[in-house]
Amino acid sequence: MRGAYRIGAFAAAGAATLLIELAVVTDASGQSAPTPLLTDTPQYCAELSDEVEEDRQALVSPAPAEIEQLAEEGRQLCALGQVRGGIVRLRRAIVLLLKASGHS
């Protein structure tokens, strides 16, 4: 029986660990006022749009149509207020432009 008691103690310890883990993980989010992120704003959208323009002009050859389209879509989404969607497209355009400039 002694062994069973010891196993029981182990089990209790394990359960406690799991519960504490769950508790720590779940309560972390709701304690204070959230800090706003600056990269979800129309301003940042405009910033990225400018950067796309810069990078495109820096290219020797004309930018591929695919990149142009991405950038255009991004700008339109931003204008429509879909800021996060627009930003993602603009970022993708920047990455592709970087690649293109790296190759040429």
Binding site: Q31, A33, P34, T35, P36, L37, L38, Y44, V83, R84
Partner: peptide, 25 residues
């Protein structure tokens, strides 16, 4: 620099890692 508006007040200075509530749009 960076995309957080300000240094989060809730962030304890002595901790390296933290979970932080943020606001996105």
């Amino acid at each position: 620099a960076g995309n957080l508006a300000f240094w989060p007040t809730s962030l304890p200075l002595n901790r390296t890692w933290a979970e932080l509530p943020i606001e996105r749009a």
